[in-house]
């Protein structure tokens, strides 16, 4: 057991700089991360050149490899080839023709000063304006504070008098919405008391979740729509 532990630690040592300079995986299908603050290089070959990838090099285990450096070594390598999951790109949406009413009314919407937008992240709507702070209900993987996300899925876009409703989504070419990852937030520890009837025993279960916080840095209506739209 101790030899396995030592071996796992030795094997982890070269993999140590990974979490800092790790290749970026696109966070979700709806979100396209733009690297503006600290451009980190994407090096897709690192996952392929290794003839026998260590368990910590597989992408689906990259987060768990940070949490525990012990109990990492599997007893024996399975003969079947390891699954390598590539970062997926969102499916290409064929650009639709814009409705003429949208084309005519969009400059009026853009001319009004303040805009609101209902963006969707993982299917949940967030009605935001520029400068708002959003605490997502989950911890977004593979982002660092300062990263800029381009949010391209929205259901409504509006100003004081006009609202552009998507069916179900507003055309991506009509707006630009960007959010800056400002960090992670913790909630206070939750204590759940597990108790059964007619039994004095009480069990306290603790949990504490972490959440990613964003700031909406830009909401812009694009009026120069390409000609083919």
């Amino acid at each position: 057991m101790s030899r396995a532990l030592l071996r796992s630690v030795l094997e982890l040592r070269p993999a140590v700089p990974r979490p800092i300079a790790s290749p970026r995986i696109l966070p979700a299908t709806q979100i396209r991360a733009l690297q503006t603050q600290t451009p980190r290089q994407f090096n897709p070959t690192a996952q392929f050149v290794d003839p026998q990838p260590r368990p910590s090099q597989l992408p689906e285990q990259s987060t768990s490899s940070l949490s525990s450096s012990s109990q990492r070594e599997p007893p024996k390598q399975k003969p079947n080839p390891p699954r390598v999951r590539l970062p997926t790109t969102p499916p290409e949406i064929t650009p639709q023709k814009l409705d003429p009413s949208v084309k005519s009314l969009l400059p009026l919407l853009a001319a009004q000063p303040a805009h609101y937008i209902t963006i969707h992240i993982h299917g949940r709507p967030y009605l935001v304006t520029e400068g708002d702070a959003v605490r997502l209900p989950f911890l977004m993987p593979d982002v660092q504070p300062g990263d800029v996300l381009r949010l391209n899925r929205a259901s409504t876009l509006g100003s004081r008098d006009f609202t552009l409703k998507g069916s179900p989504w507003v055309d991506e070419r009509l707006f630009e919405c960007r959010a800056v990852v400002t960090g992670t937030e913790q909630e206070p520890v939750r204590v759940m008391i597990k108790k059964k009837r007619r039994c004095r025993r009480k069990k306290h279960v603790f949990s504490q979740h972490r959440y990613t916080t964003l700031t909406i840095s830009e909401v812009k209506v694009v009026t120069e729509v390409p000609e083919d739209a």
Binding site: R124, Y126, P188
Partner: peptide
């Protein structure tokens, strides 16, 4: 590194805004 230095708070609403209502 990721923390903001604020106390841990339980929040129920995801969006906090100090802007005036658009509509």
């Amino acid at each position: 590194r990721d923390a903001s230095g604020e106390k841990d708070k339980r929040t129920t609403k995801p969006v906090t805004s100090i802007n005036e209502s658009v509509r």
